[in-house]
Simulated scan of single mutants.
Amino acid sequence: MRAIILAGGKGTRLLPYTTILPKPLMPVNQQSIVEIVIRQLKHNGFDHITLALGHLAHLVKAVLGNGNHLDVKIDYSLEDVPLGTSGPLSLIPDLDDTFLVMNGDILSDLDFKDMLQFHRERQAVATIAVHRRKVHIDYGVLHRKDYRLLKYEEKPTIDYEVSTGIYIFQREIINYIHPGVYLDFPELVKMLIHNERPVMCYPFDGIWFDLGRVEDFQYVQERIDALKDAIPFLSPNGHRSNPDLYVPASTYREEQPYEA
């Protein structure tokens, strides 16, 4: 199976950490983010990995090479100009009928095999892994019609689902991407929905960090000893450093920095 890792951005959200290193090479527990992701993908049957690169591509290629040390085949797709999060897919030849796409800065315990099975069972053209988040509002929220107050909420909590940046696609989606044209995933998904193509949401309530955010990156660094027992391959020398010490994902969902 083939997986595409999007790793071409400049990592501006992670400054000043990414002043020298590209975001996929940021260190987490003595290895780079992207190496953890690749080990997880390999464990789930994805043995052909294509990295879509742009900014500081030569450094990523120098570290990962052809993938022999990770027991996978690694190749690269280079964009001369930024093409967004969907545009780079148009540059990749010989895509499988079904393939996975994910951001290169995600740290998670998501079961890629289960998501793939979910996608196939529902005959989806696109499946998005979604994660529930909560945002606490520190103000009184007013609901009104014209000038009349209808409802007052004191410091409410908003509960919603967000895209994790992990997708499974059918090759059909390439028909909606014009070569060399900038296109982000939200626009691609909107086109699929407009054309009544089946787009599914895969609910995921496990551990998920967007390491492109300074808050998440710092959170993980500060709690690495606990997280390495819960997230596959966060420990450089094994699947989990100690499976007997596995901590339920719910422990971390309640602590994540979104919930201020």
Rank of each mutant, 00 (worst) to 15 (best):
V135W: 04
L64C: 00
P93F: 08
Y152L: 14
V63M: 05
I4T: 05
F233K: 08
Y139T: 12
D184M: 06
Q256W: 13
K113S: 12
L78W: 12
L150N: 14
P24H: 07
V220A: 05
K155R: 14
I224W: 07
Q221H: 08
P156Q: 07
D114L: 14
D138T: 12
F185I: 15
K10Y: 07
V28I: 15
E79V: 15
I231N: 05
D225A: 12
A52T: 06
V162L: 14
K151I: 00
D184I: 10
S32A: 13
D216F: 02
P257C: 07
N66I: 06
P198Y: 11
D96S: 10
D210S: 07
K228I: 13
K145C: 04
K113W: 01
M1W: 04
V181P: 03
G206K: 06
Y176Q: 01
V37Y: 01
G54H: 13
D105N: 09
T98D: 14
R213V: 02
Q30H: 14
G65P: 01
G9S: 10
K228N: 02
L188V: 11
I166E: 03
G87R: 11
A249L: 05
L150Y: 11
I137M: 13
Q170P: 00
H194A: 14
N66T: 12
G180Y: 10
Y176E: 04
V37P: 00
L234D: 07
L150F: 06
H194Y: 13
N29L: 12
R144F: 13
I173W: 08
E222A: 08
A126C: 14
Y252F: 15
P236D: 04
G238F: 08
P243I: 04
N175C: 04
P186A: 11
D159H: 10
E254F: 03
E187H: 09
Q117H: 09
I173D: 03
L41T: 05
I36Y: 00
H239G: 01
P243A: 10
E121P: 00
